[in-house]
């Protein structure tokens, strides 16, 4: 990424250039809270500043976070094998975009660790049990809730890390469903 573009994203997150991942994460969480809703510091600005402006700022913060996480990522380090059955992932243009291939439990953990985020922070913020988050990253499918709930948790988890929630959910659930198919139909 060009330097001035990078600087723009650091500015957006109100950080000096080359701030560590930890700060990127903290700043993102702090700003997200301010611009997500009826914050005590936003409401008094009055109607001359529109809801559209707020949403735009929120988008810019999310974009900056995502871009900075990407920029911080080293050369793609794949968790091999990416699929538990040993199959190589299909390579495609998509691969370059996220560097780490399809989102899996272990790859999500890697991204989280690189972002300097502790599991208990997520647990606290999303009000999810630690065991559930651990099982999610370990792909201990049998310990995870039904897909319909899992989907919600995955979405929240992904947004927390500034990842694309739709992609994360889709790719994670694909593997989950494959496992489910193997172990037979659901009890119900």
């Amino acid at each position: 990424m060009p330097k001035d573009e990078l600087k723009k994203y650091y500015d957006m997150l109100e950080l000096p250039p080359d701030a560590p991942l930890r700060d990127i994460h903290n700043s993102f969480m702090r700003l997200k809270k301010i611009y997500s809703g009826d914050s005590i510091v936003l409401a008094p600005l009055g109607e001359e500043f529109s809801e559209k402006k707020r949403k735009r700022v929120l988008e810019q913060i999310e974009e900056a976070h995502l871009k900075l996480l990407e920029a911080k990522k080293d050369a793609p380090s794949r968790t091999a094998p990416l699929f538990s059955d040993g199959r190589e992932p299909e390579d495609g243009p998509e691969m370059d975009k996220i560097g780490d291939g399809p989102y899996t439990g272990p790859s999500l953990r890697k991204i989280r660790e690189k972002a300097g985020v502790e599991l208990n922070e997520i647990s606290k913020e999303l009000k999810l049990r630690m065991e559930l988050l651990k099982s999610l990253e370990d792909e201990k499918y049998e310990a995870l809730p039904e897909a319909i709930y899992l989907k919600v948790h995955l979405k929240n988890y992904a947004s927390f890390l500034g990842l694309d929630p739709v992609r994360v959910t889709e790719e994670y659930l694909r593997r989950y469903q494959a496992w489910k198919g193997k172990t037979g139909p659901a009890e119900k």
């Binding site: 109100e14 702090r30 301010i34 914050s39 510091v41 600005l45 402006k53």
Partner: peptide, 10 residues
């Protein structure tokens, strides 16, 4: 810190 942010961005 929040006010600082809002003042700059808005």
């Amino acid at each position: 810190a929040s006010i600082k942010s809002v003042m700059m961005k808005y």
